[in-house]
């Protein structure tokens, strides 16, 4: 591919420019977000629950349109896409949902085969080879005949991962991939995210609040709070950050910018017997 003057711009797979969003115009969930995700990198978006990171992921996915600003994903503005265009864009993306979201009425094999069946006309043996290849990559080729209800949480998530890479996507999105996993599965998923990203030549975005695990995997971090990006940098920079919120988050302190107590009236006043 020729280097064009635009190559600088297009080396970012995702560009979020001044994006704001709110389900209800009076209560914006995202305010003026700016980020660039470079091709081939693994990027983490971290923050407290409710800071807007999952909403941001949905905007990147094209499920929501920004109320203000632009989201450019894989070279296309999500705001300008019609349904056909959106589907075309999504065929180049893979997404891992929080608990896997496997189709419960199909076997593991059928789940991974699903995107291949829907989007490609493949002869059965080629399909079989591809599905087994993907399952092998996540270490679950032996589980091909099982049903999702028979899988443990970690296994289900790995199958979902295999499904999301079935079409060799250029961009892989992870929504809280580490939630509720045991330490071994943690390590497995983290390793897979890195390995798959590099072997597929893809770009990955991880939304999570599992700091320690994620910091070991990502190349770059964006830290969000209350709908804004309040810090960004490499894992080393974030760990050393003196920004109070980041500090509290990374070190798991119970006091800091995020207070322990939910706002409440004066304690003494609350304990007094109610006025007649």
């Amino acid at each position: 591919m020729q280097q064009s003057p635009d190559s600088e711009r297009h080396s970012s797979i995702v560009e979020i420019g001044n994006v704001s969003f709110g389900y209800d115009p009076a209560h914006p969930v995202l305010r003026d977000i700016n980020l660039k995700i470079a091709r081939g990198s693994v990027v983490g978006i971290m923050g407290q629950s409710g800071c807007g990171k999952t909403t941001l992921l949905r905007i990147i996915m094209g499920a929501y349109l920004p109320s203000g600003g632009t989201a450019r994903v894989l070279g296309e503005l999500t705001g300008k896409l019609d349904r056909e265009g959106l589907y075309r864009m999504r065929r180049k993306m893979g997404m891992l949902f929080q608990f896997g979201a496997l189709f419960t009425d199909m076997s593991v094999y059928e789940n991974v085969a699903f995107p291949l069946r829907e989007h490609a006309e493949l002869p059965d043996d080629l399909l079989r080879d591809l599905v087994l290849l993907k399952l092998q990559a996540v270490g679950l080729r032996g589980a091909a005949r099982l049903m999702p209800t028979e899988l443990s949480g970690g296994m289900a998530r790995r199958v979902a991962l295999a499904r999301s890479i079935a079409l060799d996507p250029q961009l892989i999105l992870y929504d809280e991939p580490f939630t509720g996993l045991d330490p071994i599965s943690f390590g497995v998923i983290a390793r897979l995210i890195r390995e798959l990203n590099d072997s597929l030549g893809a770009t990955s975005i991880i939304v999570t609040h599992d700091v320690q695990e994620a910091l070991g995997v990502v190349d770059y971090v964006y830290f969000m709070a209350a709908g804004r990006v309040i810090a960004q940098g490499t894992p080393a920079e974030i760990r050393a950050s003196s920004e109070p919120f980041v500090n509290q988050f990374v070190n798991g302190k119970s006091e800091g910018p995020v207070p322990f107590h939910y706002p409440a009236p004066d304690y003494g006043a609350d304990l007094e017997p109610a006025a007649a």
Partner: peptide
């Protein structure tokens, strides 16, 4: 239930219209 467990969203994400499928 498929909606609650995000199966419909997953299908959307895989560029398959859940209403049609």
């Amino acid at each position: 239930l498929m909606k609650a467990t995000e199966q419909l969203s997953a299908m959307e994400m895989m560029a398959v219209d859940p209403v049609a499928r």
